[in-house]
């Protein structure tokens, strides 16, 4: 954390405390009732998001009027929505609509894709969904759009280039899709942050799980929405055929990116030991990994 960032955080924290002190008692009580994590199931991604975000206090709890919002889905692959490699387009659209309704000045979407970015944006259906919802989709394939930052707290990735839109945003919403992953075993909330970093090869080369945990330090998302409607359970993260994808019809919403991954493990039915970056992130103080300590609200949509 550099000085400017520290001052910013300090100022925000002070302001927040001041507001809390002045706020009426019932607001504080209502805050206490907000769970750490909301799990929704048995609905379509849009309905599940509507119920889930309501339980977290509504989009207004995250987005204030005039703020710049970045929504970061997984658009890594040149595949169709049915193939379950990229985040559900209607879900991305709904998040954008709600952010704009909450007063966001602009909602920007991007991903540093694995395949040709134009094909990914188009064939995933996300480009169309973003345009329809009134958001703006930007390329993430140009190194010139990435800005170098350093982070002392990081264990390995002490410097990294991050997308300028992410750094400029007031609010960042992480919208991954839950998948099996050949290298990292599971990809959901934290693994999706590789798409805001320029040099992925560095991460692969230098202890991938630790680098994934480190990447969150550069800009923690304010909200994570894990799309687990379609779950790729084999041949991930790209998938080979429709046989790799199964419908689980879940969604996880949380301010805590580590908790989101810790619970996503159970949807894809993996042991925590299999996905070491979750424990690493908890060690960095990025969130809670122990399910017993996570305040969960379960909703049937």
């Amino acid at each position: 954390m550099d000085r400017r960032e520290f001052l910013k955080t300090a100022a925000v924290a002070t302001a927040a405390t001041a507001i809390k002190l002045n706020a009426p008692a019932q607001t504080v009580a209502a805050d206490a009732g907000v769970p750490t994590l909301v799990a929704v199931r048995n609905g379509d991604p849009v309905t599940m998001f509507r119920k889930g975000i309501e339980a977290l206090g509504g989009m207004k709890a995250f987005v204030k009027p005039g703020q710049r919002v970045v929504v970061k889905p997984n658009i890594g692959w040149d595949r169709t929505p049915e193939e379950g490699a990229d985040t559900s387009p209607p879900l991305v659209g709904e998040i954008i609509r709600q952010a704009l309704a909450a007063g966001a000045s602009e909602v920007v979407v991007f991903d540093h894709t694995c395949n040709n970015w134009k094909s990914c944006y188009k064939n995933s259906g996300i480009e169309a969904a973003v345009a329809e919802a009134g958001g703006k989709i930007l390329p993430g394939n140009d190194e010139a759009d990435y800005v170098e930052r350093t982070c002392e707290a990081a264990v390995i990735m002490k410097k990294a280039k991050l997308h300028k839109e992410l750094l400029a945003a007031d609010v960042v919403i992480n919208v991954p899709i839950l998948k099996n992953h050949g290298g990292a075993k599971m990809t959901a909330a934290m693994k999706n942050w590789m798409g805001v970093v320029w040099d992925r090869q560095f991460m692969h080369r230098n202890n991938l799980p630790q680098c994934i945990a480190d990447s969150i330090l550069y800009r923690k998302p304010d909200l994570t929405v894990v799309d687990a409607y379609r779950v790729m359970i084999s041949n991930g993260p790209r998938g080979v055929s429709l046989a790799d994808v199964t419908e689980r019809k879940y969604q996880i919403l949380s301010r805590d990116i580590v908790a989101a991954d810790a619970m996503a493990l159970r949807i894809i039915d993996y042991e925590p030991a299999k996905v070491p970056y979750i424990a690493m992130a908890e060690k960095l103080g990025l969130g809670i990994a122990d399910p017993a300590k996570i305040n969960i609200r379960r909703i049937d949509a």
Binding site: G183, Q201, H204, N206, N207, R238
Partner: peptide, 8 residues
């Protein structure tokens, strides 16, 4: 080093 970029 757990990499897996190729298989991914």
């Amino acid at each position: 080093t757990a990499c897996g970029a190729c298989a991914e």
